[in-house]
Write a protein that binds this DNA or RNA. Structure first.
Lengths: 145, 145
DNA sequence: CCTCAGTTTTGAAGGGTTCAAAATAATGGC
DNA sequence: GCCATTATTTTGAACCCTTCAAAACTGAGG
């Protein structure tokens, strides 16, 4: 067996119709160990493994993953875009208003109560996105600010 | 009576502890007639009244209004920041994913059901923000894309 | 009317992201 | 296994939105 050994990321990419490049595999790994990382954060992690990777490549990979449905892009106010691999379930996020840390939050009351506003102003609704704001454990207990 | 006549915006500014400059009055008027406008949009409207106003002044005014609680800043993903004068009530927004138009949406089920997630990952919660995505009336009936 | 602090103007820089052409590398077929 | 094809990445640059900073100005109180 001289073929590829691990391959889970490669398989994931191929099954999504994407070429399994080492940059893409590295980005997937980076996001596995760093949920909610931004492009720069992914870049930093990827570089430790593939030192010649460019930031633009990371942007390209993140875009490809997002388009293919393998990643999800979230953009909290005042923060650069973050990416996560947890897709397909409609979960939400809680953002620390002090340090920007992000946590996952499952939908509040069962299925999707927030998905049905009273009045949509004539808009056709497709999705609802909830962002909670607060303080992460560290910042809540930290000194002043 | 040779004093100011209209003055509602001026009064509003003064009561918030801000100087009533003509730029600020103009920005308030622009937001009254253009809810959810972005800085550039406000700038365009203000310029029709005060041609010498700078974009930086608009940014400054919007920042001052937001800090003073007279305006609210919203930042939908993929859009420049928008501003609105409707503050104090926790209403949400619906954004057209095609053209970016924004509508107001009152909180779905009475008070604030979305404010209580099941699990906060240890975060201390302060606010919840709901963004609905869909198509505005115009885009829903428009041709393709 | 004058003074002083708060605002705006002017000019520039910054971060995050996207664009484009050329070089490179991953597939599928031979 | 080797080639050709086409997707990806590299390289280098530009873009938009926003903020910063010093100097000129203006509103509000005395």
């Amino acid at each position: 067996m001289t073929t590829t050994r691990p391959g889970t990321e490669r398989d994931l990419l191929r099954s999504a119709g994407l070429r399994a490049t080492e940059q893409r595999v590295a980005v997937l790994r980076a996001l596995e160990s760093n949920p909610h990382a931004d492009a720069q954060g992914v870049f930093d992690v990827v570089r430790s493994e593939l030192p010649d990777t460019s930031l633009q490549a990371v942007y390209g990979v993140l875009s490809a993953l997002t388009d293919a449905g393998l990643a999800r892009r979230i953009e909290p106010a005042g923060s650069p875009a973050r990416y996560e691999l947890r897709v397909g379930d409609n979960h939400h996020h809680i953002v620390c208003s002090r340090c920007g840390a992000i946590g996952d939050v499952d939908c509040a009351v069962g299925a999707a109560p927030c998905l049905t506003p009273a009045e949509t102003s004539g808009f056709t609704l497709t999705t609802a996105e909830v962002t909670y704001w607060g303080l992460c454990p560290d910042c809540a207990t930290a000194p002043l600010g």
